[in-house]
């Protein structure tokens, strides 16, 4: 059992939790993930580690409530316990290297995942440019945190309520067209965002890493649910990833696979909403 030590609501459907998991906190690295099962009837879901504190023995998770399992997790409060918390899984991001200028792109909840990796890039001595995007200002998260670690910070909103009116790709495209030398782009967010970031950088041959949120059961290479086509080869997100060369990922296939259980997810979500006494 893994106790929730702290909980914060970042916005309407994005929650921030600090979980007591000292053995994982001792060894995890930026870019890795945990698999969580909330209770006995729960499903196993992967969540990328948003932060960790080796001394306090804690792991931070940040997640968007998109269906039954994330809503169930989000309904837990400080002092509640998560039944299973497995990790650290997946390969860490290669953050020790000095690339030069690194652009860290986070979309929506993805910014929470970008944050520890971006911080590691900065600590390794890279010049860090961050682009934090969301649909609107109230959905932007980690604004102060990103600003603190970045040499240059950009924010974008789809509706123009904050920062640049447009998408993360608007700013990234600008930087490239201004001739800024970029040595690495690290992007985490919705699949279409990662797809379009990769499209822009591919033209300039800028190395690009993306972190994929495939469906998983075990998270240790056993089920193959998370298989993804990378450069024409079948890879498993859980053991070969979750990060891959953004230029090689088949995003359309990935989007289809993410919708594999859509019908069942809708049933679970509806039942959950009904059990909470509210409409959908």
């Amino acid at each position: 059992m893994y106790e929730i030590l702290f909980k914060k609501i970042l916005n309407e459907n994005t929650k921030f939790m600090v979980v007591d998991a000292p053995e994982i906190a001792r060894v995890c690295k930026p870019g890795q993930f945990v698999v969580i099962r909330v209770n006995e009837t729960g499903e196993r879901i992967p969540l990328t580690i948003a932060d960790f504190d080796r001394e306090k023995g804690t792991i931070t998770i940040v997640f968007q409530e998109v269906g039954k399992s994330t809503k169930l997790l989000g309904s837990l409060e400080k002092g509640d316990k998560i039944l299973n918390f497995v990790g650290p899984l997946g390969k860490p991001t290669p953050t020790e290297k000095v690339y030069g200028t690194v652009v860290a792109v986070g979309g929506g909840c993805g910014t929470a995942i970008v944050y520890p990796v971006a911080r590691a890039f900065k600590e390794a001595g890279n010049h860090l440019i961050s682009i934090n995007g969301a649909r609107s200002m109230d959905l932007l998260i980690y604004r102060r945190e990103m600003e603190e670690i970045s040499d240059e910070t950009y924010e974008t909103t789809d509706d123009g309520s904050c920062g640049v009116h447009g998408f993360v790709t608007t700013v990234l495209g600008d930087l490239i067209s201004k001739g800024r030398k970029i040595d690495l782009v690290f992007a985490v967010g919705p699949v279409p965002m990662m797809k379009f970031v990769s499209k822009i950088t591919a033209a300039q041959e800028i190395p690009t890493l993306v972190s994929l949120n495939s469906i998983m059961v075990d998270g240790t290479g056993m089920c193959g649910a998370c298989r993804v086509n990378v450069g024409g080869q079948m890879k498993f997100s859980c053991v070969d990833g979750p990060e891959f060369d953004g230029h090689e990922v088949d995003y359309d296939e990935l989007m289809g696979r993410l919708n594999a259980y859509k019908e069942q997810e809708e049933i679970s979500d509806r039942l959950w909403n009904e059990s909470q006494g509210g409409a959908a």
Partner: peptide, 20 residues
């Protein structure tokens, strides 16, 4: 995957069990 969902995660009892 198919058998793990059904056997370990009890997907045959969906939606009482969350795994589809």
């Amino acid at each position: 995957e198919f058998l793990t969902r059904v056997n370990l995660m009890k997907a045959y009892e969906f939606p009482e069990y969350d795994t589809p």
